[in-house]
Every structure is written in structure tokens, then in C-alpha cells.
Nucleic acid binder design. Structure first.
Length: 497
RNA sequence: GGCCCCUUCGUCUAGCGGCCUAGGAUGCCACCCUUUCAAGGUGGAGACACGGGUUCGAGUCCCGUAGGGGCUACCA
């Protein structure tokens, strides 16, 4: 049955090696988008056939990463499904059965070459020389029965061309003579990727294999194996990969966050994006925009919108330098468009982690002032932490913060002192009322707005840079705002005497 | 080395033979707005790797060269 007539089913099949790398996630995302676009299923399968590389707790980390990004999984080791188990080490019988089947059918053979022999061949600059390909079947069976260590290798055609179709690259052709007799089953009874993924993708009814382009060289091998089994092939899409920001080398070689040539920190693991204060929506948007584009010159879009338009055939075949600078912009776009209550919910734990006790009602008033200013969620501490510190402990900032450009301590004292009764007299303490009063005040004393507004900002927030002054004073309330201005005046006077 | 894939502004990309004096975004620069910081607005510099073909016509098709990436394990 041709794959195209089946339900779309794609999978992400990582090795359980711990934290999730953004490169793998990007590939997974394209598979996920494609499955969702076609109302199909997205499967998680753990490829733990290399026991040396398996890391405990990996499945949890993978699932957490997908949860955080909002990519839902239909079947997998954590939730089960109709085609389980979804962990390859629990499917060994299956691989052994099919490996032996291939031997019986004459498509594969036992190879008794020792690791030493193979090492020598490699040293001599040659690959495996197929020395057991024509080993007599009876002797092969006899040695296996005696327990002689061996692997099972695939009998690759010695001549001819293998042609395959890739959704992204079109037709690709390979000379069979260039390819080796790959190992299908290792001497420890575990399968290699080549065998395991085909057995599983067939058993799990995967309709489209989406994987990184580094698999392209083994594509002909896989095609031959599919053919030897006589199973209907899925369709293939070899996805481009992410390169380092300078375009040199695969990003996935990086095992953790690093600094690029401009000194900018470049996250690569999913949890690093999280702790850097990026929104999952922004990360997904960012990733989707590399190698694929939404169309209509639109750069900011959500999962659902991308899902409705995504197609593997539109994926750009070229690898991409990792455009990390764009993520900051995208993150600020998402921050600006966030629902204020939702943003408050996300900001709260960060303030608490910084040691503040968060009054939610207060936070909700502050958030709108922050939305256009945050680049990262983490910025909230630096920008608005002062709202959440204990007000009773507030001490005015030093003179160098209070005194504005072209002012001195005496003039600043005078400016603040003069502003006090005017602010005190305001019935309406709204930002606009304050601004009108203070603009008139500045004009009346022949000062620029900045001199007045800036001194008030410093007096109230304790910072040189802060959210807008009058909004800040409004949130503090007239009493607290004026108390702080008075404290600043007192501090300046104390410093002068 | 062999084999495979790729090649449009610094970067991410649009472009699927004429609509391209190559569009968008980001980053950078300037100006505007402005109480700081942002955000926003306007404008600017900035690319079809090179060489051959095919065609009336090529960024778009073909070949070669160069450059980049990958594979070449009893790892995935």
C-alpha cells in the first residue's frame, strides 16, 4: 500500500542521551508540524540500542522539553499507544527475529570478523572487505550454534544504482559499489540504527521519515533494506541542520550554551532557553522560521498558524547558520503580545527566586509597564524588582542617581522640594494629571521636563532607568510616592550639611 | 582521499524563465517621537559565489569550478 494513502504518522526518535538539543528539537518540530497539518499522529520512540550512551532520566527530560514547547505527543514510552513498546531495548526479540529472517532469505549474513580484524582493516585504510559474505551457510550456522561471537551484516548489492526520492531534495542516486555491508545486529544482540528504525517504522506505521540530512548517505542502505523486507516504504524528508552562528560546523556538536564571536550567549539546550527567559512560543516561532517561512512576509506567528500552512516540500534544503540574534527580537514581540495576566503568572516565580515576596495585585499593575521593555523574562528583576522590595526598607538612592544632567545637589533638592506641594495638592493622582502638573511646574521654574521627571524617577524608584515615572508613582500611590520624594530631599540635605 | 547534499544582503529568508532597476525580517546607521529605558515611525547602506552553456529572455534550467556541510563505527 503506497505510503501516501495512509494516515500521516511521523516520529521523533532520539537516543536517550540526556538534555534535549535544539537541533534535534528543530527536526522534531518539522515532523510534528507535518503530522498536525495532516491531522495525523506524532510518535516519540527512544532509540537506546547503544547501551554505552544511554543516560537515565532522559525520557523525562525529553517529555519535559516537549511539554514546555507545547508540542504534544500522541504515542510514546510515557503514555503508551497501540504500537508499543516505544523503547527499542524492549523490542530486541523483534529485531533479532527480522535479522535472522534476512539471513534465511539470503539478504544478510553472519560475520565472524573480530574487532581486531576490523581495526586492522581500518588501519590499512580500507573498510570491511566482505570476508564472510560468501561463507558457507552450513559452517556459518554451525559456528553460530557453537556460540562464536558474530554480527549480522546486510548484503548490499555489489553493483548498480540505488535511487531514492526525498521530499525536500527530489531524486537522489547512489552508486551501490560505494556502500558497505552494514552491520544490522551487533554481537551483543542489539540492533544497529539501520535495522531497528526500519523494523520499528514499519511496525509503527510511520508514513514519513523526517530526519536530519546526516542520514542521507545511509539512505540507499535503508532503501535496500526496506526492499529486502518487501515492506511498503514510507516517504522520506532529509531535513537541513543548524550550523554554528558563524556558519562553520554543525551546531549540534555543541553540548551546551556558549558565547559567539560578539560575546553573546548562545543557548543550545532546551532548558537553557527556559532559564534564559525565552518564551516557548517565541522559541517555536524562531525555530519554525529557519528553513521554512510562513509566507506573506509575516515573521511572527503561533503554532496553530504554522500548522495550517506547513509542508515538508517547502523546506529549504540548505543548512542554516543559527540566527540567534533574531530570537531576542521575536521574544520581545511575544512578550509585547502576551496577555498581561499570563505574563504576570510567568514573572512571579522569577521575582520570588530573586528573593522578593510578590503581591499579585501589584504585579498585575506593573506588567503593562514592562511588556514593551522586557527582552527576556529574567529582565523583570532588574527592571521592576524595586516594586516588590519591602517598602518600609526603602532608602533613597545616592546623589549621583538623584542628580540629573546639568543639575547639582542644591538644584535637585529645590526641584524636588518644589514639586512636593504640587503633587500633594492633586486630587487626581493619575499619570496624566501628574504629568500635566509637573510639566507646568518645570516650565514655571525654567527647567526642562527631564530635570524634574528624572529626579522624581530616581527618588521614587531608586534607579536611573525605570518604567515611566508617573505610572510608577501612580502604582505606589500618592502617600508612598511622596514619602519617597521627601526621603530623597532629606537625604540630599543631609549629604550637603 | 572517496561518496552525498547545499550555495540570494553579515544573518534568517521570498523568488519555482519574463511581474526583479531582486521583496521581507533581523542586525547596523541616521532622523522623528520622547521624562530614563524601551517600544513605535521614517529613511539608509547591504546579496543572486564564479565560469560556461540552453533560451528571444536566467537569480530561476543544465554542466563545470570554487566554497560550505555531512557520511565514511558492532554511535545514532
Amino acid at each position: 500500500m503506497p505510503a501516501r494513502d495512509r494516515t500521516v504518522r511521523t516520529r521523533y526518535a532520539p537516543s536517550p542521551t540526556g538534555p534535549q538539543h535544539i537541533g534535534g528539537i528543530r527536526s522534531a518540530l518539522f515532523g510534528w508540524l507535518f503530522a498536525r497539518r495532516h491531522a495525523g499522529q506524532f510518535v516519540l520512540r527512544i532509540e537506546d540500542t547503544d547501551q554505552k550512551r544511554s543516560v537515565r532520566g532522559s525520557v523525562e527530560q525529553i517529555v519535559d522539553s516537549f511539554d514546555w514547547l507545547g508540542l504534544d505527543i500522541d504515542e510514546g514510552p510515557h503514555i503508551g499507544g497501540a504500537f508499543g513498546p516505544y523503547v527499542q531495548s524492549q523490542r530486541l526479540d523483534l529485531y533479532q527475529h527480522w535479522a535472522n529472517w534476512l539471513v534465511d532469505q539470503g539478504h544478510a549474513y553472519r560475520c565472524f570478523a573480530t574487532p581486531q580484524e576490523l581495526a586492522e582493516l581500518r588501519k590499512a585504510g580500507r573498510g570491511y572487505d566482505r570476508r564472510y559474505r560468501d561463507f558457507p551457510a552450513d559452517r556459518s550456522a554451525e559456528q553460530a550454534a557453537q556460540g562464536v561471537a558474530h554480527v549480522i551484516r546486510f548484503k548490499m548489492p555489489l553493483a548498480g544504482t540505488t535511487r531514492g526520492s526525498d521530499l525536500i531534495r527530489g531524486e537522489v542516486a547512489f552508486d551501490n559499489a560505494q556502500l558497505q555491508d552494514a552491520v544490522l545486529l551487533k554481537s551483543d544482540g542489539f540492533p544497529t540504527y539501520h535495522l531497528a528504525h526500519i523494523v520499528d517504522d514499519h511496525a509503527m506505521r510511520i508514513s514519513h521519515i523526517t530526519r536530519a540530512v546526516e542520514w542521507l548517505p545511509s539512505f540507499p542502505l535503508h532503501l535496500q533494506i526496506w526492499q529486502a523486507f518487501g515492506w511498503g516504504k514510507p516517504q522520506f524528508a532529509h531535513l537541513p541542520v543548524l550550523l554554528n552562528p558563524n556558519g562553520k560546523g554543525k551546531l549540534s556538536k555543541r553540548k551546551q550554551q556558549f558565547a559567539d564571536s560578539q560575546g553573546k550567549s548562545v543557548p543550545v539546550l532546551v532548558h537553557e532557553f527556559q532559564s534564559a527567559g525565552y518564551l516557548p512560543e517565541a522559541v517555536v516561532n524562531f525555530l519554525t522560521n529557519i528553513g521554512w517561512n510562513f509566507g506573506d512576509d509575516q515573521e511572527v506567528f503561533n503554532r496553530a498558524e504554522a500548522m495550517a500552512r506547513f509542508d515538508l516540500q517547502d523546506v529549504n534544503p540548505a543548512n542554516s547558520a543559527y540566527p540567534i540574534a533574531k530570537l531576542d527580537w521575536l521574544n520581545s514581540q511575544w512578550l509585547q503580545r502576551s496577555d498581561a495576566d499570563e505574563l504576570a503568572r510567568r514573572l512571579k516565580p522569577l521575582l520570588e527566586a530573586a528573593g522578593y515576596e510578590v503581591n499579585v495585585a501589584l504585579l498585575i499593575k506593573v506588567v503593562p509597564l514592562l511588556q514593551v521593555r522586557l527582552k527576556s523574562l529574567n529582565d523583570v528583576v532588574r527592571m521592576a524588582g524595586f516594586f516588590f522590595a519591602d517598602w518600609n526598607d526603602f532608602t533613597p538612592p545616592p546623589a549621583d542617581i538623584l542628580v540629573q544632567r546639568k543639575q547639582d545637589e542644591a538644584s535637585t533638592t529645590a526641584i524636588l522640594r518644589g514639586a512636593l506641594p504640587l503633587l500633594e495638592a492633586l486630587e487626581d493622582f493619575s499619570p496624566t494629571a501628574q504629568q500635566a502638573a509637573m510639566t507646568a511646574y518645570a516650565a514655571s521654574i525654567g527647567q526642562k521636563n527631564g530635570a524634574v521627571f528624572g529626579s522624581l524617577r530616581a527618588a521614587v524608584s531608586g534607579q536611573k532607568v525605570s518604567p515611566p515615572t508617573f505610572e510608577t508613582m501612580d502604582i505606589f500611590g500618592k502617600a508612598e510616592a511622596l514619602r519617597r520624594v521627601k526621603l530623597a530631599v532629606a537625604a540630599l540635605e543631609a549629604a550637603r550639611s
